[in-house]
Computed example of a mutant assay.
Amino acid sequence: MTTEHGGHAAPANATEYIQHHLSHLRNADNTINLDTFWVSALLGLVFLGIFYMASKRATAGVPGKLQNFVEWVMELVNDTVNSAFHAKSKVIAPLAITIFVWVWLMNAMDFLPVDLLPKVLEFFGVYKLRVVPTADVNHTFGMSFSVLLCIIAFSIKAKGVGGWTKELFTAPFHAHGAMAIVLAPVNFVFQMIELVAKPISLALRLFGNMYAGELIFILIALLPWWAQWLLGGPWAIFHILIVTLQAFVFMALTVVYLALAVEKH
């Protein structure tokens, strides 16, 4: 038997509880996941605010904790960029830093207690909320589609429209004369498969890991309080590695894909 909260029924059993926590807050047309949009947007502002604050407080003397943290993040990302991307670009490093920190912040929302923010928002008449944007496949595909656009833009900038178009029909099977004409459709198909596979792999890898982590936290929340502490603590500690690793992998693969985009094949 369900109990009513503000006209909405509370989950009556484990199945309803899981379904409730896996349901998105959507707009009236049921076309936009508002929770994913607003949480990711707010975390983007948090990222910009932290780094802006660090830049204003930066000093050549003894750095503070915030400056040390930001410099450590920037050094980590710069090392990755320098080792994978050998062309000249003023965009790649800021892009990589933005991806790493923003994705990490979105992943880290998984550390909040499952019922914390949903219970808070119930006081404001909001009865559905998913707080991990990267556990929404729409969001991860949106980010990976942006990476795809960057791959195309970097390719055209490095090779020109003509050079990029030519590469679509001449690689990976380079040939000359009549054989080049015969292999052109085959090359184009393989190029399209490679181009499409990159954003799909980016999106599904991040989504799969974060969705699984979110689901495990929901299942742990169904256990008695002593079991939640017994199992939730170790899983949260292990999840720190997953959250950080997935943010790093998304960033590193983006850099590698952009590096491949500017290379001539």
Rank of each mutant, 00 (worst) to 15 (best):
G49T: 15
G49L: 09
I50M: 09
I50Q: 08
I50C: 03
I50S: 01
F51K: 10
Y52E: 14
M53S: 13
A54F: 06
A54K: 07
S55W: 13
K56Y: 07
K56H: 09
R57P: 14
A58R: 10
T59M: 02
A60C: 04
A60G: 07
A60P: 02
G61Y: 03
G61N: 06
G61V: 03
G61Q: 05
V62F: 15
V62W: 12
P63G: 01
P63L: 03
P63F: 01
P63D: 01
P63C: 01
G64S: 07
K65T: 06
K65P: 06
L66H: 00
L66N: 05
L66A: 02
Q67E: 07
Q67F: 04
Q67M: 02
Q67W: 04
N68H: 14
F69M: 08
F69R: 05
F69A: 12
V70G: 03
E71K: 10
W72N: 09
V73G: 11
V73H: 12
E75S: 11
L76R: 09
L76T: 08
L76P: 00
D79F: 10
D79I: 10
D79Y: 13
D79R: 15
T80F: 11
V81P: 04
V81Q: 03
N82Y: 08
N82T: 09
S83R: 10
S83D: 10
F85T: 00
F85M: 02
F85I: 01
F85L: 02
H86R: 15
A87N: 06
A87E: 11
K88E: 14
K88N: 11
K88S: 12
S89K: 04
S89L: 03
S89H: 00
K90P: 11
K90V: 10
K90I: 14
K90A: 14
K90W: 09
V91R: 14
I92M: 02
I92P: 00
I92N: 04
I92E: 06
A93E: 09
P94I: 03
P94W: 05
L95F: 08
L95Y: 11
L95V: 09
A96F: 04
A96Y: 07
